[in-house]
Amino acid sequence: MAEVASQSKLFSPCEVRSLSLSRRRRSPLVALRPAPSFRSLRSSSSSSSVGNGAVVLGDWIQRRPAERDASSGLHVKMSLCIGKSMKWWEKGLQPNMKDVHSAHDLVDSLINAGNKLVIVDFYSPGCGGCKALHPKICQFAEMNPDVQFLQVNYEEHKSMCYSLNVHVLPFFRFYRGAQGRLCSFSCTNATIKKFKDALTKHSTERCSLGPAKGLEESELLALAANKDLSFNYNKKPLPVFAPDDVAEPTPTSPKFSPRILKGSEEKVLSKIG
């Protein structure tokens, strides 16, 4: 009993508290505090508001509904921005590049361009050559702000492209003023020199005598005959002249201009007469 009494030691209340604290610090386990009940939260009188839009109920923090709605709306906007990425044919566009939405839009754009050079670019979203060539076309558009570039999506306007005899992609057509179509060809990134030469040749300043021609009449008739397109075109009638409208030749016209005969011709005519 003496040995047991010698081994056991009586501690004061302060020593017991310090011993329990030291054991908690050394222990790797963290005691979890039980969640308060609904009644304790409701009856708690120590609730106070803080500056960042939260309400403190005892040791618990509850966010306000307005803050939850704002955070959820921000999350939705971020997800929409991430999901809506730009397509390759929408990147690098210049102010002088325009998308064609219909056959009427194409015809009106060519006519309203006046004496300006217009390049019609036929492309397809699934065309690898069109995708590789697009950045260079945007560079040409940036270096030539006076040239109008029209982009026609083949997948969206397939029926119109058939009527315009476009069967190879990428495909380009050059138009200008009263001359109408200047050239048409297909090129890729490897044969870009063909596009450069055509742009250098037809971008020089020139005056057109008359209004812009735009599409050929055969192309306009083909678009009007296409039932998939809501395009109307009436063939221009040819001028018909009445017999009374034909001016009769007068003695002052070149047909009755007097001829000066030479001396030898006078002798021959005198012998015949």
Rank of each mutant, 00 (worst) to 15 (best):
A5Q: 15
S6C: 05
Q7P: 02
F11N: 09
P13Q: 12
E15P: 01
V16T: 11
L19R: 15
S20T: 07
L21V: 08
S22E: 13
R25P: 00
P28C: 03
L29N: 07
R33C: 00
P34M: 01
P36N: 04
L41N: 05
S44V: 01
S46N: 11
S47D: 04
G51S: 14
A54S: 09
V56C: 14
P65H: 09
S71D: 15
L74G: 14
V76Q: 15
V76H: 12
K77V: 10
K77R: 12
L80E: 15
C81S: 15
C81W: 10
M86Y: 05
W88R: 11
W89R: 09
E90S: 14
K91H: 09
S102Y: 08
D105L: 02
L106F: 06
S109F: 01
L110K: 02
L110Q: 05
L117N: 11
F122E: 08
Y123Q: 08
A141E: 06
L150S: 08
S159N: 11
M160S: 12
M160R: 12
V166C: 06
H167S: 12
V168A: 11
P170E: 08
Q179M: 06
Q179E: 11
G180I: 02
G180C: 03
R181I: 02
R181F: 00
S186Q: 03
C187L: 03
C187I: 03
T188Y: 02
N189W: 01
P211F: 00
G214R: 08
L221I: 01
L221A: 03
A225P: 02
K227H: 07
S230N: 15
F231S: 09
F231V: 02
N232M: 04
K235H: 05
K236P: 00
P237I: 00
P249L: 13
P254I: 04
K255F: 10
F256N: 13
S257C: 05
P258A: 12
R259I: 11
E265F: 02
K271T: 11
G273D: 08
